[in-house]
Design a protein around this nucleic acid. Sequence first.
DNA 1: TCAAAAGTGTTACCCCTACACCCATGT
DNA 2: ACATGGGTGTAGGGGTAACACTTTTGA
Lengths: 250, 250
Amino acid sequence: MSGEKQSKRKYSGKKLLLAVDCIIFGFDEQGLKLLVIKRGFEPCMGRLSLMGGFVGDTESSEDAAIRVLHELTGLEGIYMEQLHLFSSPLRDPGARTAVMAYFALIDIKSYQSQMSDDFQARWVPAEEVPKLIFDHNEMVEMAKERLRYKAALHPLLFELLPDKFTIPQLQILYEKLYDTKFDPGNFFKKIRSTGLLVRLKERDKLNSKKGAYFYQLDKEKYEEGFNTFLNFVYKPRFKNKVQKKSSVKK
Amino acid sequence: MSGEKQSKRKYSGKKLLLAVDCIIFGFDEQGLKLLVIKRGFEPCMGRLSLMGGFVGDTESSEDAAIRVLHELTGLEGIYMEQLHLFSSPLRDPGARTAVMAYFALIDIKSYQSQMSDDFQARWVPAEEVPKLIFDHNEMVEMAKERLRYKAALHPLLFELLPDKFTIPQLQILYEKLYDTKFDPGNFFKKIRSTGLLVRLKERDKLNSKKGAYFYQLDKEKYEEGFNTFLNFVYKPRFKNKVQKKSSVKK
DNA sequence: TCAAAAGTGTTACCCCTACACCCATGT
DNA sequence: ACATGGGTGTAGGGGTAACACTTTTGA
């Protein structure tokens, strides 16, 4: 009764390799972008893949992901979160490997300024991701879904924009991500009503004649407000009431 | 330029053990419960811990979690999802181990009917979880948070109830989980308006004189409706408008 | 002067909370 | 009969989608 069944299980697992892969999103005028590299080692050398690396002996998977992101982009403090562990025994033909996938959001501009070509990295449109190695396409799909999910509830998309941005810029981002259009007036009020933004003196005159004010995140309120659900994305309303509960009970 | 930096990284990680731990929730009259076992092997034999196991050579972590849940409870088809990968190099003093934590919801009754004591399992109140081994308490806290998060948006809590249940039962569950009270009338209408439930002929006469109808999940609508955000939990409203934007600009 | 985008104001509607009230039944 | 909890009905208010309108400025 003292757990006979259990005892035989003492460290009975086979060891395996633990890796991280990073699904890195950026955003520019064309829309949402994904950062991929040309793989520089076997197996599958030369093919496109996500940026990844193995978890070292003295680091956690978070450490590894931060390291990998830094190696590729030179950036620190990137928004990043666990996406999903992929651990099918069949997923990597080379060796038994489990991969913790992370998804990350970066300001595409700040990256391009310090791009190196060690990894032959490139941005591809998130809507038309080319064939990647292994199960990387599956990871990307899951990441896109997660991004849409989270961004509808949390003020997440600011991570994709530069430090200073305009509300119309932000609107375009939301519209691309959800493939929809928002009423500019209502969007403006909704965003402002969150209280997360601070308006700057300058205006962006490039994209319109009148010019749009630049805003910055109020870092404090951003962190406070992150977990208060926001419902940024308009909820579907019943435009045409289909049935009107035609109380026909005799 | 063809990725010199990358080549040195070919399978350069150290192997490690991959395990799964299951944070299993149940619910009864007293409230939310957590299922823990008395550990039957070293290290830390005899202490309380989550149910877990190593990921075998030919299975994914999902497979392993399903297996582990089945070993402990005898149940199949349990609701289960990835919670978080815990991979600090310091977390398990015995060996370098990464743990994929899963959180699971079961109907406490269906489990108790086939409980075995191979693992010396017991239910503990989720609000007063005793000290568990390693980082298991941290996992539990994270799981509780995730449960509250998800259950506010998805019709998840049905997984904690028997096949047939009453709406007042469900209300108690929500009230316990969010430590709040709901207006019975409004709760009733809100739940019914989801269209996820089918009313049965029978009533539950045990808990009230009038008796409450039993309901069952409409499986089809449940699966459809799972990902439409639900906002089950009342959103905080501004009861007392603090400032009224006293447009005082001269 | 006109066009086009930024930003503000207004209205109508819908949902949702609060609460009154009816219903069923065991004691 | 009456207390208790289940369930229904209703009114008022807040939030928001739709849309009109003003502002700004380059062409």
